[in-house]
Design a protein around this nucleic acid. Structure first.
Length: 390
RNA sequence: GUGGUCGUAGCUCAGUUGGUUAGAGCACCUGGUUGUGGUCCAGGAUGUCGCGGGUUCGAAUCCCGUCGAUCACCCCA
């Protein structure tokens, strides 16, 4: 037997119903609101992510599916979506300011567990070009519409991490502080001390709590302009009655963020999605000087959090005579009514069972020209009006 | 990358200190029954016991490796 590749999934049955439902809500929440759906390649040059996400991040240093193709190009299966959208924008829309939406598979070489797969799906939006606090605000408020359409409960957490310069100054001081206290840090945090200092603040390890609590706060290092922008956003959120929680420890995993960072978190602490501002990304990539703000959602995480999604009631066609069953199919096609049918002409008994298992509402028995309502358990002579009404 | 648990029919699982032809329920198929039909009855098909090696007269059962699942750490969506 050939097993499937570790960390990949077959999305089937109830999960596929959920998946398609979420994709549909994604469409309705973003694409119908002016975000242009943009599908970029699944493979990119390694360089793109090394420069954007940062070589020190775990995503780039350990988790990329990197390979050389037969032409000797160093390629990766994309680990995230933003960098590709930024690349696209610089190629074709450099001077413009635009809304983008993307939805697709991402790949990271990690050990799989609940809500984490090697091949997974992210749906996200970005605004690129000349942007302002209204751009930040709409990314957040449009995200909330999406999550609310899905009936999800969540908390919005926000933070500002200042400019890249502020952050570097802060990291210097944090590094000094942590080095002084390094004997109180956990082993995991010690590993990060020199190359990923900021991430230590995110530690869930109890050993680190005391040290983190007394650590210097990033707020003290942030320039006035960034503070001003952050306050502007908060007042916009307040005016629009959007609840949020400030979390000064909210640091995101990708190097390219500046100023605003935010996450949508369930009460169990699961991050459904997150994002922020990345004004220098295009510059870091050498692709231009435009700014950006965006968010990405973990589609599997949403699938695992929402309740069951009921499939639409269906009409099921049964019969033992091929000619009659195809005749009915043609008739229904003509009326634009969709229907399910048995995969082959099996025992009528079995066809009934299948209709029941697939939660059919009506069974059309083409042998007898009747319609049976499986919910009320009543049977009537075939009448197209019965189907049109429902 | 680290650790725990697990891997027997399509699915859920049983399989007694290693011992003869590896089982059950559900699902599936056939025939019949039922014509407020999805019920019921009878019969049937289906397994490299994840894969590879080892120990043994003999391994689904013990040992090693490997692949996969799951959960946690790490990391992140």
């Amino acid at each position: 037997m050939i097993e499937q590749v570790k960390g990949t999934q077959n999305i089937v049955d109830e999960n596929s119903t959920k998946y398609l439902y979420i994709r549909d809500q994604f469409h309705k929440s973003f694409i119908n609101y002016g975000y242009s759906y943009t599908q970029t390649p699944h493979i990119e040059y390694t360089e793109l992510f090394e420069k954007s996400i940062g070589v020190n991040s775990e995503i780039v240093s350990k988790q990329m599916y990197q390979f050389d193709d037969k032409g000797g190009r160093s390629l990766v299966l994309r680990p995230e979506g933003t960098s590709s959208i930024v690349r696209y924008h610089s190629q074709f829309n450099k001077e413009q300011t635009k809304h983008y939406a993307y939805f697709g598979q991402m790949f990271r070489y990690e050990n799989p567990q609940k809500n984490r797969y090697r091949e997974f799906t992210q749906g996200g939006i970005e605004i690129l070009g000349q942007i302002d606090e209204y751009s930040d605000f709409q990314v957040i408020s449009d995200s909330i519409r999406f999550l609310k359409n899905l009936d999800l409960e969540f908390t919005l957490e926000i933070n500002t991490i200042g400019s890249l310069e502020d952050r570097n100054a802060y990291i210097d001081n944090l590094h000094k502080y942590l080095t002084l206290n390094k004997d109180k840090l956990s082993d995991e945090s010690l590993e990060k001390l020199n190359n990923n200092t900021l991430r230590i603040l995110d530690s869930n390890n109890k050993t680190d709590f005391d040290v983190i609590r007394d650590a210097p706060e990033i707020l003290e290092y942030i320039n006035e302009d960034s503070i001003l922008k952050f306050n502007l956003l908060k007042s916009l959120l307040n005016k629009n009655k959007i609840a949020y929680r400030e979390n000064t420890k909210l640091v995101r995993g990708l190097d390219y963020y500046n100023d605003l960072t935010f996450e949508f978190i369930t009460k169990d602490g699961l991050v459904l999605g997150g994002g922020g501002r990345y004004d220098r990304l295009s510059e870091i990539l050498g692709l231009g000087t435009f700014n950006g703000v965006g968010v990405a959602f973990g589609i599997e995480r949403i699938m695992n959090t929402i309740g069951t999604v009921s499939a639409d009631p269906t009409i099921y066609l049964i019969g033992s005579n091929i000619n009659k069953i195809t005749e009915y199919a043609l008739f229904l096609d003509d009326k634009n009514i969709n229907y399910f049918k048995p995969p082959r002409i099996s025992k009528l008994n079995a066809q009934f069972k299948q209709a029941k298992n697939l939660n059919a509402r009506y069974v059309i028995n083409t042998d007898e020209d009747t319609i049976k309502d499986l919910v009320n358990n009543t049977s009537v002579d075939f009448d197209i009006e019965v189907l049109i009404e429902n």
